[in-house]
Computed example of a mutant assay.
Amino acid sequence: MRTTTPQKPRLTTSAMIASIASEGQRTVPAPFGHALVKEAAKRPEIVGMTADLSKYTDLHIFANAYPNRHFQMGMAEQLLMGAAGGMAKEGFMPFATTYAVFATRRAYDFIHQVIAEEHLNVKIAAALPGLTTGYGPSHQATEDIALMRGIPGMTIIDPCDALDTEQAVAAVAAHQGPVYMRLLRGKVPLVLDEYDYQFEIGKASLLREGNEVLLISSGIMTMRSLETAKALAADNVNVAVLHVPTIKPLDEATIIAQCSRPGRLVVVVENHSTIGGLGEAVATTLMRAQVVTPFKQIALPDSYLDAGALPTLHDRYGISTEAMVASLKSWLR
């Protein structure tokens, strides 16, 4: 008699705007939009700008609260960035929102020349970072950090959850100069409130101790790293998690100190291509500091990714919790 192995049910999600929250996970609706409204009440210079994507970047929350400070630029991302630079020159603080692919790939030269060269106070909040949409290469911003890291003076932030996003908005508003922030929108998971966490630009945070593996992560992969650490604890594997929400400037001192502890496998985990992201930034830091340690990377491949449902794609490209657990177990054998 033939037997079959029961298949784990797969979550079905919209390929275009899919939630990254697991079934039953705590979430907060539109943390970016609500945090921006809160900051705008204290800072009249804040304006919200978008390229026909207010609803899909949660900027509609701001637009409803401050309609006279909301600017809809249409499907013209280059115009959006150019206009944001002009607004900043007049003393405003534009929060310019669009999808990460359109900000970094389509409007790169305008960010580089109009905004960054003059160190203007423009905050770019870019939705659908990395593999957070199943809509294929046209919408998957798998190289956005690599592009932005090359711009002098650009601060780059990759929040983990709703709490990180809320706190980052306040910090970004208080920061002078251009910022690129990966934006989590819609119903965003809430995980960091369990770790006495406080966001600070340029600072990493050790969320969990462990003496066998050190996971260095940013963005949604910190959430996955914490889940992986808990799963491996059941097998008596002690995993530390270092959350690095600011990719640039990088908290090199903390990274060097943590990676200098002997006897741990260091694994950088990121929702980004293996090229030019957190992994290469950490590796370069360790090389310059002459820190020698076992080193691995969990990241998206240097290729054009498939379209499809996010749970399937995250499994396929190794960034689901289950895939991470399997990778770590194979490396620890």
Score class of each variant (00 low, 15 high):
1 M>E: 13
4 T>N: 14
5 T>K: 14
5 T>Y: 14
8 K>S: 10
10 R>W: 03
17 I>P: 00
19 S>I: 01
21 A>N: 06
28 V>Y: 12
30 A>F: 02
30 A>E: 14
34 H>T: 13
36 L>C: 03
39 E>G: 00
39 E>L: 08
40 A>T: 12
59 L>N: 09
61 I>K: 09
61 I>P: 03
63 A>Y: 13
65 A>K: 08
67 P>M: 08
68 N>L: 14
73 M>C: 10
78 Q>T: 09
82 G>W: 10
85 G>R: 11
88 A>G: 11
88 A>L: 13
95 F>A: 00
96 A>D: 02
98 T>V: 10
103 A>L: 15
104 T>D: 10
105 R>E: 10
108 Y>G: 01
114 V>K: 07
115 I>P: 10
121 N>D: 15
123 K>W: 09
133 T>H: 00
141 A>I: 02
143 E>F: 13
143 E>G: 02
149 R>M: 06
153 G>C: 07
154 M>W: 02
154 M>E: 01
157 I>R: 04
166 E>T: 13
168 A>Q: 04
175 H>N: 13
182 R>G: 01
186 G>K: 01
188 V>P: 07
191 V>I: 14
195 Y>R: 01
200 E>F: 00
216 I>D: 03
220 I>Y: 10
220 I>V: 14
222 T>W: 08
223 M>L: 14
227 E>M: 14
229 A>V: 07
242 L>D: 05
244 V>I: 07
251 D>K: 08
252 E>G: 00
259 C>W: 06
261 R>H: 12
267 V>E: 03
278 L>F: 11
278 L>W: 10
280 E>N: 13
283 A>F: 09
288 R>C: 02
294 P>K: 11
301 P>A: 07
304 Y>P: 01
307 A>S: 15
311 P>D: 06
312 T>M: 12
313 L>G: 08
314 H>N: 08
318 G>I: 05
320 S>P: 09
322 E>W: 00
327 S>F: 13
328 L>N: 01
329 K>R: 15
331 W>P: 03
332 L>I: 02
